[in-house]
Design a protein around this nucleic acid. Structure first.
Lengths: 208, 208
DNA sequence: ACGTGTGAATTTCTTCACAGCC
DNA sequence: GGCTGTGAAGAAATTCACACGT
């Protein structure tokens, strides 16, 4: 043990969700795993797995490896996944609809508890018998009343920046943006982009 | 000039699509830009922009900076974006539908030219008056006849691995996977994951 | 004997700082 | 004067290799 409160590099934090994915598969076969098996599964070196995990504590046992349930619990705790997270969906077009219908979120403790759109035809529509789309002008109230810190942003590129600024102004701390636009926001706001075109433009480098 | 054919680190390649995004915005304001402006826009240092670009050639002019159109052309060429790319969509559920309706692909030279699904109810449906969903058993024919190398994979997690293996077997070289599963495939196959849950699990580390 | 945790070594990535050209 | 391209310096990330606990 040595870690007290040293800044953990983001590149390590970013790998932890992958570790969770691997653990959820390996769990089906055994109670324990080890750095070699985890590494092979994920395409990382065994040393890296051990180094990464050692940043947060001593989760393994010499000779045995890692108890899968215990390690999962620890990583969940590190990533603050041991609580439920409320999210608001901003923009209810095609992608927004796909998000509302995606079962993977609530299984993982993420809940879209409200959805807004700016188009009159959308507002009032009920999705999945669960969520009724509200007008975007209600967004401040929604965020503040429910104390929401995460937004899924699926508005058109042309209004993404201004919409994001409003979200931040009303208290949103993290944004998953599907808009193909680089957002300029205060540095304490976390933004993750989900952008298939960027991914495609990346892989084509490797295709003849 | 110094670069002949040295392997370019992937971390640099991965930034190039971002540069394109920035350039497409900056183009509206000026004919030229420079490493400082590009860096500020993207949150990178000016030195890094220059170093990155210098891996591929000498695209700038001292005292002036970079001509935006010229630099865009060069990066497009580096990333093989100066041609049209055909893709096949595998899985036509919610996410698949959103992809078929997303206008951003063809604007960037990426074209979903066929879509397949395994469910009888889906097969034969026409989307957008453009694409008719075909049975997944046609996938080999579709890939080979059209010489497709990119697949968008949006099947359920439970069948993602086996479906991906089939795609590879039939000649697919790159996969954008929306399935929340880590795929194990030959190393010459490029896989990019688009997974909002991973993104969420990453950002929650930074939220109290 | 197995496999972790970790200093040390190595490799990779980023920034510095400046000569040189516009 | 402004800004690139680039060696050299510095920082960060990864891998090595081994002492040590089980």
């Amino acid at each position: 043990m040595s870690n007290s409160r040293q800044e953990i590099p983001d590149i390590i934090v970013a790998r932890l969700p992958r570790y969770l994915r691997a653990l959820s598969v390996l769990r089906k076969k055994s109670q324990t795993t080890n750095s070699k098996e985890l590494g092979d599964f994920l395409g990382y070196s065994a040393a890296q797995i051990r180094k990464d995990l050692s940043q947060f504590g001593e989760f393994g046992k010499q000779g045995t490896g890692y108890n899968i349930d215990f390690l999962t619990e620890q990583i969940n705790s590190i990533l603050n996944l041991d609580k439920e997270w409320k999210m608001v969906l901003v923009g209810c077009g095609n992608i927004g609809h796909a998000i509302l219908n995606y079962p993977g979120f609530s299984h993982n403790g993420f809940h879209v508890i409200a959805a807004v759109d700016s188009s009159k035809e959308m507002v009032g529509k009920k999705i999945n018998n669960l969520i009724t789309i509200r007008d975007i002008s209600d967004i401040e109230e929604i965020i503040k009343e429910n104390n929401i810190s995460i937004a899924m942003l699926t508005v058109p590129a042309s209004v993404a920046q201004e919409t994001a600024e409003k979200l931040v102004q009303f208290g949103i701390k993290a944004i998953i943006s599907y808009a193909p636009v680089i957002l300029t926001l205060p540095h304490n706001i976390r933004v993750e982009y989900i952008d298939p075109v960027i991914s495609l433009q990346h892989i084509t480098y490797y295709l003849s």
